[in-house]
C-alpha cells in the first residue's frame, strides 16, 4: 500500500514533528492547490486556502488516528477550506457572470473569438458549470498528471468511480465547447 518511509513521515507529523510536516508541505501542497483551484477557479484565493488548510491541519493533526489516511485528510481540509472561501466570496450575482459570458461573443468579432483568449474564457465558463468534485478531479489529473487510483484515494471517491466522473466531465466540457472546437479544427 504505502511505503514504510512515507508512513513514518506521516506518523511523525501527527506526533508533532515539524520537520516531517514541512516535508509533507513540500510534497503535497501542489495537490492541495489543485483541489482548491478546482473549487475556486482563482489562483490567489486557492493559494490562500491552501495556506489556511495547512495551518489548520497542523493545529488539529492529533485527530488523525491512522497515518495512512493523512493525505486524504489533508485534501479534505483543503476542500472544506476552499468551499468556505467560495461561500464567503463577495457575491457577484450569477446573472452578472452570465451577462458577461453572454456579452463577450457579441463584443468581440467572430475571428477574435477564435483566438486562444476567447477559447480560454469559454473553457473557464464551461468549467464553472461543472460540480466542484469534477473540477478538482480534472485539476489533479491535468496539473499533477496523477493516476486514477491516487486521485480516488485523495478525494475519497470509491474505487473505479473516477472514470465515470472524468468521462462525464470531459463530455460536458466537450458539449459546451463544441462550436469553439469545430472552429479550431
Amino acid at each position: 500500500m504505502m511505503d514504510a518511509n512515507e508512513r513514518e513521515i506521516y506518523r511523525a507529523a501527527i506526533h508533532g514533528d515539524r520537520d516531517a510536516f514541512e516535508m509533507i508541505i513540500r510534497t503535497h501542497s501542489r495537490t492541495l492547490f489543485a483541489i482548491a483551484y478546482g473549487i475556486l477557479q482563482n489562483r490567489e484565493e486557492a493559494e490562500d486556502a491552501v495556506q489556511d488548510a495547512l495551518v489548520k491541519a497542523w493545529k488539529s493533526r492529533w485527530r488523525v488516528r491512522n497515518p495512512e489516511k493523512f493525505p486524504a485528510w489533508l485534501c479534505m481540509i483543503a476542500r472544506h477550506r476552499a468551499r468556505d472561501v467560495f461561500r464567503k466570496r463577495p457575491r457577484v450575482s450569477q446573472t452578472d457572470l452570465e451577462g458577461v459570458a453572454a456579452a463577450t461573443p457579441t463584443i468581440y468579432a467572430p475571428d477574435v473569438a477564435n483566438t486562444s483568449a476567447s477559447l480560454d474564457r469559454q473553457l473557464h465558463s464551461a468549467l464553472a458549470e461543472l460540480p466542484d468534485l469534477h473540477r478538482s478531479a480534472l485539476m489533479l489529473r491535468y496539473f499533477e498528471e496523477m493516476d486514477y487510483a491516487s486521485i480516488e484515494k485523495l478525494l475519497g471517491i470509491s474505487n473505479g468511480a473516477l472514470r465515470g466522473i472524468l468521462g462525464r466531465a470531459l463530455a460536458s466540457l466537450r458539449k459546451q465547447l463544441r462550436p469553439a472546437l469545430a472552429s479550431l479544427e
Binding site: I25, L119, R174
Partner: peptide, 27 residues
C-alpha cells in the same frame, strides 16, 4: 482535441515552481 485544450490551458494555471517555498514560508 478537448484533452489537448485542457492540457494547454490548464498547464498555464498550474502552481508556479516557487509555490512550495511560499507555502512553507507562510506556514
Amino acid at each position: 482535441s478537448m484533452n489537448n485544450i485542457l492540457e494547454e490551458n490548464l498547464a498555464a494555471e498550474k502552481a508556479d515552481p516557487t509555490f512550495e517555498q511560499r507555502m512553507l514560508a507562510s506556514f
